[in-house]
């Protein structure tokens, strides 16, 4: 029986075999890139908000403490989004005619909540607790990024489980003195490794990696 394919078609078959490997590898690489891209993770993507609230102005330029608005961060799992009353503490007197702030005034006037767009959200099967993190020396900016430089708030970390575990495996790389937790301009010192190890010991930080620590 005569050969159906000419001898030269072997080149094609070899090419397609090698090509297959590369295509699979390329596909894998592309998926990996997509998974880490801002398009998928929302990292560094500012969200549209009903009022263009600027952490850069309030926390950075004015130097208002994080806890002035996020009052429950030290005692609750949830840091707390301030009620309109907190905004109006100052804005009943300053920028009272600003059109930008009309939704805030309307909210206060009509007792209607402002629907902020959530920037950092975890799946419902993750039980994260702010209070334990801030009371063990994990600073706001460690997870939330350079918040004092964000005109509009964006997510600074992927919030992937691997991202959480980076710190849970090596807390000494991220821990800071308790007095600096709420300092938005904290600079990681050169001797972080050494300082971190001392703080981990002093604050009795456990490197918790059990599933049930976060998944209950």
């Amino acid at each position: 029986m005569a050969q159906i394919f000419h001898h030269s078609t072997n080149v094609l078959s070899r090419l397609s075999i090698y090509g297959g490997v590369f295509i699979v590898a390329l596909l894998g690489a592309a998926l990996y890139e997509i998974e880490l891209s801002p398009w998928y993770t929302d990292v560094h993507v500012s969200r549209e908000q009903p009022v263009p609230f600027s952490h850069k102005h309030h926390a950075g330029e004015l130097g208002i403490d994080c806890r002035y608005c996020h009052t429950s961060v030290e005692k609750s799992s949830f840091a707390g989004v301030p009620p309109t009353q907190t905004c109006m503490t100052c804005h009943s007197q300053i920028w009272t005619n600003s059109a930008m702030l009309e939704p805030v005034r309307a909210s206060y006037r009509d007792d209607k909540s402002i629907s902020w767009t959530r920037v950092n959200a975890l799946p419902d099967f993750v039980y994260f607790d702010h209070s334990i993190h801030v009371s063990k020396g994990i600073g706001c900016t460690t997870c939330h990024g350079q918040i004092a430089e964000m005109p509009l708030t964006y997510r600074a970390g992927t919030l992937y489980m691997s991202w959480c575990l980076d710190c849970h495996r090596q807390p000494e790389k991220y821990v800071r003195p308790k007095s600096q937790v709420f300092n938005p301009n904290y600079q990681v010192p050169d001797n972080q490794e050494q300082l971190g190890r001392e703080l981990v010991k002093e604050y009795k930080i456990q490197s918790l990696q059990n599933c049930s620590v976060c998944h209950r």
């Binding site: 949830f78 629907s115 799946p123 419902d124 099967f125």
Partner: peptide, 13 residues
């Protein structure tokens, strides 16, 4: 289902 469970988280509408 597990990501968005039928329960209210703080401030959920």
């Amino acid at each position: 289902d597990m990501h968005i469970q039928p329960k209210y988280l703080p401030y959920e509408p």
